[in-house]
Design a protein around this nucleic acid. Structure first.
Lengths: 143, 143
DNA sequence: TAAATTTCAGATAAAACAATCCGATTAAAA
DNA sequence: TTTTAATCGGATTGTTTTATCTGAAATTTA
């Protein structure tokens, strides 16, 4: 099966977008996120813990606790979530799996795929969470 | 860990490019392919068996047997190998993992990522093995 | 202080993926 | 016909990813 981002990373991006969409409501409980996104509660909880360690989200323990974005959504990018969970190796490794594919000894698709990879990287880097906010709210409502 | 194609698919693409580069020499043994590409012999053997079932490569059993491309390299595309091994779901499923992301109810990055996906698909579809042949030979020699 | 509710942390289980093993079958050559 | 060398096919093992479970710690309210 072909995959782009791991489940952890997908759920992490979904959760962060959810938090951005619900930012005005203070902290959000894992139960709410998991129920809305229909993903395993304990799993997304672990992911939010690691995103807390990465400084992307902030947690509040105890009664009426939960999670919120740690920074303004205008400075959080999807690439930050990817970097925190999956790492950025996919933007730097050979799509055919050749271990020593470099600009000097490129694989047959090195140049063409490189363009694509740069496009993907720039897309995830330039767009910040606040740009997705409205879209995300609409999306969440349709789930 | 982020991944684009599975190991099976990577090895499959590598093996097919190897066969294209060695087409003039008749059949090629799995041992040769595995040794040159530095991938597990039994694993790549299984992959070649499935590519045989898909009609992309042909096998010759017994002494002096081995594998060769089943068609002219000008009609075999990398997307054919991807389709046979990993399937094409990645070109049709949401990059954020939203289960019901559609043009009507798109995820926040649906449109931008869709462009990228189309580019990737077209690239893998339009380029045939013969175009990679010389590059592959060079590549194989540097491994 | 006690009760309620939440995150945190570690262990474990289940599933998917990657790799290996082994004997059977096939085919060419001596 | 026997030997040799290759693919084929099924079962098995190992590793990583995904998911779950349980109890501790933290925080608010009564």
């Amino acid at each position: 099966m072909t995959v782009i981002f791991s489940k952890k990373c997908e759920y992490g991006m979904q959760a962060v977008l959810y938090l951005a969409a619900h930012q005005t409501e203070g902290v959000t409980r894992v139960d709410d996120i998991a129920a809305t996104l229909k993903v395993p509660k304990e799993f997304v909880s672990k992911i939010l813990q690691s995103l807390t360690a990465s400084g992307i989200v902030a947690s509040k323990k105890g009664k009426f606790g939960g999670f919120a974005l740690a920074k303004d959504p205008s400075v959080i990018r999807l690439i930050d979530v990817v970097a925190a969970i999956d790492g950025l190796e996919m933007f730097d490794s050979c799509v055919l799996g050749f271990p020593n594919c470099t600009p000097d000894t490129p694989c047959p698709v090195h140049d063409t795929w490189g363009e694509l990879r740069t496009l993907a990287y720039n897309m995830l880097t330039e767009e910040t969470l606040d740009k997705f906010k409205q879209k995300t709210i609409n999306k969440i409502k349709t789930i």
